[in-house]
Write a protein that binds this DNA or RNA. Structure first.
Lengths: 226, 226
DNA sequence: CAAAAAAGGTAAAAAAGTGTAAAAATTGAG
DNA sequence: CTCAATTTTTACACTTTTTTACCTTTTTTG
């Protein structure tokens, strides 16, 4: 389990990092919102712990950017005051938990563990899912795409991409989100791989004319079923 | 899925709106019972979220009026206290669910989703908005503009602009509104892109002479069908 | 009212982004 | 290691978006 810890408190954060590492987590530590974002882009994480109050780019702003890249990753906020507006703003961003400073390391660990467990359970549930796309059935776990009497076994990347389409509630996925979720890499912007895989999915789904993967120029793609 | 949110809490309601929009709903927000009712009359909604306590016209009174207009639409109440009498009154009005403040956004979303699912299990999740413009039919999701036997596939921006025209109830869109909604940018004022796209739509719609996109000098445009 | 200024219309060029077949590189089972 | 499946890169034609250029219309100014 790999955590991203972003906190500008240079005294506290190394201690936090050490404690969590002693509990068996891998921890990447950053001390500003910008550094945190770039760390998130260039790595693969299972959860984020963000200090709300940081100069320049605060924890909420960072959380917005992270949510853009991964709408489901658990985010815990470290916050000094338990102000109502802050709490609401965090909830609106999909905060998974709040930890009020000062906190005990024990408490932090337990909350992190519970949040990850909860999120993992959800993920397992959604991984069981069989998605319906027009008349097709897509089994995420086995990566099988059934259409009528035909069946295609998708490769790992094809399946991951189709899963992203199915799990985004409006069918829209941003190009950078897809790159982040599939390749976990931000320097993929030149590569044409994503285009190639979209092209493959279009071929797989071409028997149903009601199904289309539309391009949104410069933004991403949208799976629509009429 | 289009929701009507009526809540006089000016801090909480925009966050609620944003969160629900992030979850894929279209949300119309109003801050009083009267405004809520007039919004309901002039739009098409799949569900309502009404704050019980509002000055002048409370959520229950509003619910009664809405039920008059549409006896089946799902209504959720936001309520501070869990008072017994309130609960009974709401149930008598056919409340589909109660959400007690303070609530987490996650909880709100889950309840809204469940209520809507229960309410129209047979209807599709995806919004199948098809607008009629003269003799044309415009399918927002697939971005297809059908006119007679012809069909044109609009690009992302062309479709977005036409959608703005269709969704504004008098066909008028302000220039700055369009720039904001399409490009999310206010520093586009010098650019001629909007003019170019209006010009394109005029060409697409030129087969019907009854249809015109008029310019309102210095203000914006208006789509009129005689 | 006439001239200047501001705003708009639209064709066409430029810039940015995309589709997809096919070649090259990588991976992994046997 | 070898071979086949998978992934990445390449190449190039095509599409979409933005900008430019130049002309017309509308509004403002004196």
């Amino acid at each position: 389990m790999h955590l991203l810890l972003v906190d500008d408190d240079l005294t506290l954060s190394p201690l936090t990092k050490e404690y969590l590492e002693a509990k068996g987590f891998a921890v990447t530590m950053r001390h500003s919102g910008d550094e945190g974002l770039s760390a998130f882009k260039s790595g693969t994480f299972d959860g984020c712990i963000l200090d709300v109050r940081m100069p320049f780019k605060d924890g909420f702003s960072l959380a917005e950017d992270i949510r853009q890249l991964n709408p489901n990753i658990p985010i815990l906020f470290l916050t000094g005051a338990v102000q109502k507006e802050e709490r609401i703003r965090g909830l609106a961003l999909g905060a998974d938990d709040y930890i009020t400073k000062p906190f005990s390391m024990e408490e932090l660990y337990l909350r992190v563990r519970n949040t990850l467990k909860r999120s993992n359970a959800q993920q397992k549930q959604s991984e069981k899912a069989i998605h319906e796309i027009g008349l097709y059935r897509f089994d995420v776990a086995s990566r099988e795409l059934h259409g009528g009497s035909e069946m295609v076994k998708l490769t790992a990347i094809e399946a991951k991409l189709l899963q992203l389409f199915c799990e985004s509630n409006n069918g829209i996925i941003r190009r950078d989100t897809a790159l982040q979720r599939i390749w976990g890499d931000e320097d993929m912007l030149k590569g044409r791989s994503l285009n190639v895989y979209v092209s493959k999915l279009r071929t797989f789904l071409s028997a149903e004319t009601r199904i289309e993967i539309l391009n949104v120029h410069g933004e991403g793609y949208q799976l629509v079923v009429r």
